[in-house]
């Protein structure tokens, strides 16, 4: 118990500490792939440090929602991170049915973020909020399809146990897992507002989704939002890595090695996708998400019928 709790706390700390590094890694790799030198690996840390020291400016007409929403965001992200197995250590929070809590905790952060965006009373933020609400709606089924199907196959309802149950079985199961991971990747891209859905580097308010929601935040608020954004990206990265971890329970060292290589590979994958993909039209995004869902459905059908 004691050791397990310690491991859990260590993994939360790892997530909290390393998530900006992961974001920096993705950006660096993307820069290299597009033939630039790019910002240093630790750039996100520098930016956060800079933001932390600035004064907080709230928009006129904003209310208490804008003030607490960044906090709610960070807290929910930490709680979500505490449910994930990092390097296959047992997480702090793990109980039957926590997969639902995980999805809904992320829903809580989204709820407050949308409210905070609408709180400013500017139509830029409103636009971002409306898009976020719409796309989140189509993104939710993907999560439930991919993790729900593994859960139904294994019979577990705890995220840790679900991810733990992924093991070498036979070829059709492996294909199943690979396709699951593809749809989770598509989900991650949407949720973390990465390239084919949302361009983190765009400079036009009208084309932003996530960025425009935090357009009027600054100082500490922006710091919190960005930090929770990094954590969210890392959370999805961990989910993705967990798919390719068929050696569960084979020692901590191996776990850590796989975790690190997995992060590197995933960062490269994200970088590659961001380099080669062009961004979708806003009205095609629900279609893209439905496509990911379709993959999930097909996958499940095929897997259940081959058994």
């Amino acid at each position: 118990m004691g050791l397990g709790l310690l491991q859990g706390i260590v993994s939360v700390l790892v997530v909290l500490g390393l998530s900006p590094l992961f974001a920096g890694l993705v950006n660096k790799l993307k820069a290299i792939l597009t033939g630039r030198i790019g910002a240093p690996l630790l750039q996100p840390y520098y930016e956060m440090q800079r933001l932390f020291r600035k004064e907080t400016i709230n928009a006129i007409g904003s209310s208490f929602i804008s003030r607490i929403s960044p906090l709610v965001n960070l807290v929910t992200m930490i709680i979500a991170a505490a449910m994930l197995p990092v390097g296959f250590w047992k997480p702090v929070i793990s109980f039957d049915g926590d997969i639902i809590l995980f999805a809904y905790i992320l829903g809580l952060s989204r709820f407050f973020q949308i409210l905070a965006a609408m709180d400013i009373g500017s139509s830029f933020e409103g636009m971002g909020a409306a898009r976020e609400a719409t796309f989140a709606l189509f993104a939710e089924p993907i999560f439930f399809f991919s993790f729900g199907s593994i859960s139904f196959i294994s019979g577990y309802t705890s995220l840790y146990m679900i991810l733990h149950s992924i093991q070498h079985q036979n070829i059709s199961y492996e294909v199943f897992i690979v396709i699951c991971s593809i749809s989770v990747f598509m989900l991650a891209v949407t949720e973390c507002s990465r390239m084919p859905v949302d361009d983190p580097n765009t400079h036009l308010e009208l084309t932003m989704i996530h960025e425009v929601m935090i357009l009027d935040n600054s100082g500490l608020d922006l710091f919190l939002y960005q930090y929770s954004g990094y954590i969210k990206l890392f959370i999805y990265a961990i989910l993705e890595i967990s798919f390719f971890y068929p050696f569960s329970g084979q020692g901590y060292l191996l776990g850590i090695i796989i975790f690190i290589t997995g992060s590197l590979v995933l960062a490269t994958a994200l970088g590659v996708v961001e380099t080669i993909a062009s961004r979708y039209k806003m009205k095609n995004i629900p279609q893209y998400l439905l496509f990911a869902t379709a993959i999930g459905i097909l996958n499940l059908l095929i897997y259940t019928f081959t058994r």
């Binding site: 294909v175 396709i179 379709a294 097909l298």
Partner: peptide, 19 residues
């Protein structure tokens, strides 16, 4: 193997319906 190929085939169908 046949199944894997069929899955790929189905995926191509999905792609057809979104492109």
């Amino acid at each position: 193997m046949e199944n894997v190929l069929s899955i790929l085939f189905c995926l191509s169908l999905f792609y057809l319906s979104v492109t």
